[in-house]
Design a binder for these strands. Structure first.
Lengths: 145, 145
DNA sequence: GCTTGACTTCGAGTCGGCTCGAACTCCTAA
DNA sequence: TTAGGAGTTCGAGCCGACTCGAAGTCAAGC
């Protein structure tokens, strides 16, 4: 039972991950992949399914704002073996906290926005229901629309 | 009863809003303020409390990723008067949706991160409890740390 | 009269993360 | 044998939102 691991071209990886081929080359150059990418006889990149899996995780880290240097560091630690488990944990924990903070920040902004949207919705409803508006022409909340 | 509206220096506004004086000047130049900022005899900016209030809203819009051109547009509409209420509403609604999407995206990234953090936590707990690890030296999830 | 400190203008620089384009090499299929 | 298409390298360019620095003005206090 000889299982040959299939390899993927950069185009295939691009399709599977949603990253452009440009970005994939860039990521490789930035050392964001766990191990060096193989090449075929013509020098073309041969990716593995594991690369794809990792790139998917990578995408999550990126979309949650982890900087490339941190991702590189994480990958580096991974390569160094099991003795870096604590360090990897710490790195992820720190990021986890940042993302939570970011969600909280967005939520707080969203509260303000929701409130304003609501205000305008009411105002428009009132404006169409009874065209007469008794508080004068510009009655925005706190005078800022 | 003559109520003189007090004016604030750029430094005071900076303190109250958390924006640097550099940024405040930049925002003025980018037309993000509702009305033109007054100046004293020496050419120094005189802000109003309303400016501060608006800047606080502005900060929320920014922290939730609204681009400066959109904010400028919003302010512009506001200046144009009540007939732009629908347009302002639309603008805010669109942003609201973007922010919600962004929160969802972060949340989905957070799920992955939480899962990984959890994985490492367990692994470390196991590693310290019984130093022997029966599945070999590198048993990361799906082989990617 | 001199320093201090907050202000002014202007234009240039920074940063991260792509994004693009030029010029080239291969392989395949008609 | 020639055209197409997917790949390669390299370096430059872009974007938004600041951020900084130089050089100058002004008013108050010592």
């Amino acid at each position: 039972m000889t299982t040959t691991t299939p390899r993927l071209s950069i185009g295939e990886v691009s399709e599977r991950t949603g990253l452009t081929t440009h970005t994939l080359r860039f990521y490789e150059q930035e050392q964001l992949l766990v191990d060096p990418v193989e090449r075929d006889s013509a020098g073309r990149r041969l990716f593995t399914e594991q690369d794809v899996e990792w790139l998917r995780v990578c995408t999550k880290l990126r979309s949650s704002g982890m900087p490339l240097p941190d991702i590189r560091r994480y990958v580096e630690l991974f390569r160094e073996g099991p003795q870096t488990v604590q360090a990897r944990f710490d790195l992820l924990r720190a990021h986890q906290e940042r993302v939570r903070a970011q969600v909280a920040e967005l939520q707080s902004a969203l509260d303000v926005i929701d409130h304003k949207v609501d205000f305008y919705a009411r105002r428009m409803a009132a404006g169409t229901a009874e065209t007469l508006w008794r508080n004068g022409p510009e009655c925005d909340e706190s005078a800022n629309g």
